[in-house]
Every structure is written in C-alpha cells, then in structure tokens.
Design a protein around this nucleic acid. Structure first.
Lengths: 240, 240
DNA sequence: AAGTGTTTTCACTACGTAGTGAATTAACCG
DNA sequence: CGGTTAATTCACTACGTAGTGAAAACACTT
C-alpha cells in the first residue's frame, strides 16, 4: 500500500534508512503498483521522493544513485521523479536544498560573543559538528560532501560552499581584523571537515565511537589554539 | 601513432593530464587504429593503461570513470583493458597499488627520533603531506580518497587503510605508552586528511595557493600540540 | 620452421540508465 | 457540473556501459 500520510510530517514511517546498509536493499513486501492517475488527498509524495533521494545520495554518492532507485525507495514510478525535478541534477539540488537538508551553515545564528576567542571557537565547532551529529541533517551533510568530493567537476560546487562559509565566518568573527584571519579560518575549516569525515563518513575508530561531548572536548581546545595567537606558523629551520 | 616507448619510463610524453580539465577531453589528433595483433617491441601498454586509469580515477572518481575512457586515453581498445585486468575493480586495484601510486604510507620510513615529540609531529606531517605534494603520488592519493569517500560500500576500504596507518604510526611512535595514544593519533589523522583534502582536492583558497613550506609551517605546530600533553581534552562545562 | 603463448583489435551481447510522450485519475475553480 | 490543472503510471526510445569470444599479428621457445 502507498503510505497514506495526509499531513506533511517530515519523517513518516518508512523502510529502514539505507545508510549503513551496503548490500542489496531489503525486498519490498509487495509491489502492488496502483494504476495511473492522481491519488486522493495530499499524498506528500514530493517530500517522500526528496527524503529517499537524500538518503540514497548520502549512502551511495551521486553517480551510483539512480533515479530508479530513488523511485523504488519512495515507492513511485521513476517518471514521477522526472516529472517533479526534470533530471537527476535537479533531484540532487532539490534534495540538498530542501528543508530536510542543510541550506547554508552559519546563516541563521550569529556568533554570540565577539572578541572572546575561546567562546567563538567553541561555538564554531559545536555549530558545525551539530549538523553532522543530528540525525535530521546528517544525511544532507553526507550527501553534500560525498558528491562534492567525488570528482573534479562537482568539487567546484563544494569548494564554493566551503569558501563562502569560511569567509562569512571569518568576516563576522572577532578575528576579522587580523591579517591572517582568512588563513586561520581556512585551516580551522579543514580541521573540522577532516574530523567530521573521519567520524561520520568513514567512521574510523575511535572517533566514531565517542560520545559527542567527548568528541567536542577533544576538538574545541585545538580549535581555540588554531584561532588564537598562541599558535603561530613556524617554518622548518626556524625552531626556537 | 602508438607511442613507441621501449623502456619502462614512468612518465612518457602523453596528452595533457586530465586532472583539472573537467570538460570533454581534447580530441585526439588521429584515431588511426591499427589492425588486430601484437605490436613489435616492448610496447609498455600495460603501464600506459595503469597511468591513464590512475589519472582518470583521480579526476572523475571511480563510478564516473569508464573503461572505455581509460582505453581511449591510453589509445588502446577497451577489450585490452579487460584482457589485462579482468574488470573495472581490477583496474582500480592495479592502478592504486601500482608503482605509479602509493602502496602503504608509513611503511618504508621509520620515525627518526623516538620520544622527541616535536620532531615526530613534524615528520608525520611532512611525510604524509609529501605524498599529496609530489606530482608522482598525488594522483594515487586523490584516486584513493575520492573513491573511498564516494559511497558507503567503498568507504570500508578507506576506513581500513586509515585505521591501519594510524594504528601503525601510533604503535611505533614515542607516544605509544600513553593511554590516549590511539585517540590522539586518530585526531591527528583527521586533521591532516582534512587539510589535505582542502588544499589538494577541493583546492580551497588560500590553502591551495600557499607554498608547501608555508603550509607545513601552519600545520606542524598545531600537530605538535595535538600529540603533546599540552593539549588536553576539556568538556563544555569544565572551563578553567 | 613449427608451435605455443601473448598482445591487440573487432564484432557482438546483455543490461541498466536517463529521459519522453501519452493516457489515467483526482483536485481545484468557476 | 464542466474545464483546467496537477499527480501518477505505462510503454517506449536512445544510449552508454561492462563484459565475451574469436581472430590477427607478433614474440619466444625448441
């Protein structure tokens, strides 16, 4: 049966999410495809397609995710996906920019304490990593980074996204007047992105097994130093 | 004409490497396919195929690299690629484990100064990042990370690789007796991987524009702190 | 020189995929 | 209730891909 959700609830009951399920998906109980034609009520199918797409893009990356697989996961005909989103790129963009995903980090919340370096580093790490930690937004983050790192064509999009986030944060933080603010912000971004990929995408031990607060406890002090003047660059021969 | 290289030189003259060339490849001057049959002399075609494969995997990732594209780049018939390496996965494994690539980092060189924390951090950063910086090995690194981050199936391979490198380094370094050695090594790995991806894969400004030594000058001191006891984890409420 | 093994291309199959156009059913609006 | 619009499936095309099997040209033995 088609899931009969008359409301627009963002997370209806559905098959187990495909993330961390590498093998062939569990067989659907019955295909039981209904005939052509519109369904009664507000089906919410569009959102269902976006959710399936986001989960599959997060699990398989862009290239290995097929429109047919999205349609099957959402229990609709593949042509309906084309009807709503034209082509595969349209599905990806819509899924990644949907309310189910993450639009632009550091947009809504301004930094709390300008000038307080430790508070700013803590806020930065907690805000960014929360997008990974939260079940609601992790799929979007995974999809974005998987797709963006996949090949040199898609890397341009992710590069722009990262540079924009980094620049925005650098410009509004208390470090903005320092000449190396941009460099430090980029280094901090790389630091955070790398740790997030280790913990949430690759799931390397022991980072993936920690509690979130313990993870933060390791990350935040290092980030504080990166952003503070205590940590200065030092070239190879110039050790004091 | 088929490139007539009778020696096994690793980098013969070939078309411009496809990395950073997102569009359709430059059209080959003349197809001029020879008829069937073996060519006179030691053609070195096998190595040519591996080199083309490595460059294309680095540029387009695994899924978007086709055997036909590899064959075209190497100016051979696609069936020859199958003949040498069976299937696509075989091509990838052979390319990534070939002398043109990177077999296993931290295998050959042992750490120089056990117990000297600053020297060990510096050696770790320089050794790892040199694989990215060097033209000869960068394609292998890019291919490995692009493929390994692409989807949850291939992530298992990269996770094993990273965990093995991290564990090996942690076990042989001067930190090995500390209880949190494994954690610190994993954090340092994530730090380095993230910065490498920013600089070499995404090519984020300004990290991608720096001189290598300047980049190292920023990275090494942070890594020293991560590995030393100066930097301790600190939970949210317990700020001193 | 005869025979065996290796390199190389050709011709071909099987399959999955993105995308299209038309037909069907329902919602919406006067 | 009649007409338009939106949702949905069906049947289909066009295409690219991985992989196979055989034949041709050469190398390497004995």
């Amino acid at each position: 049966m088609t899931p009969s959700r008359t409301d627009g609830s963002p997370t209806p009951d559905r098959k187990p999410s495909p993330l961390r399920a590498p093998g062939p998906a569990a067989k659907k109980p019955r295909p039981l495809r209904a005939r052509s034609g519109r369904r009664p009520g507000d089906s919410g199918t569009r959102e269902q397609i976006l959710e399936s797409a986001l989960h599959l893009f997060a699990d398989r990356g862009y290239a290995r995710t097929t429109i047919r697989a999205i349609a099957e996961d959402a229990q609709v005909d593949p042509a309906l996906v084309h009807h709503f989103f034209d082509n595969k790129e349209g599905v990806f963009d819509a899924a990644v920019n949907s309310p189910l995903s993450v639009s632009s980090i550091f947009d809504e919340l301004p930094p709390p304490l300008e000038g307080d370096t430790t508070a700013e580093a803590s806020w930065l790490a907690r805000t960014y990593l929360s997008f990974w930690e939260d079940d609601e937004t992790r799929y979007g983050m995974t999809a974005i980074y998987r797709a963006g790192l996949a090949d040199s064509a898609t890397s341009a999009t992710l590069r722009a996204r990262v540079e924009e986030s980094t620049a925005k944060w650098a410009a509004t933080s208390g470090y903005k007047d320092r000449p190396d603010a941009e460099t430090r912000a980029a280094l901090a971004s790389g630091h955070l992105v790398g740790l997030a990929l280790m913990r949430y995408v690759l799931q390397v031990h022991p980072l993936a097994d920690m509690e979130f607060e313990e993870f933060l406890a390791w990350v935040v002090p290092a980030l504080e130093l990166r952003l503070s003047s205590e940590l200065e660059p030092r070239r190879a021969g110039t050790q004091t």
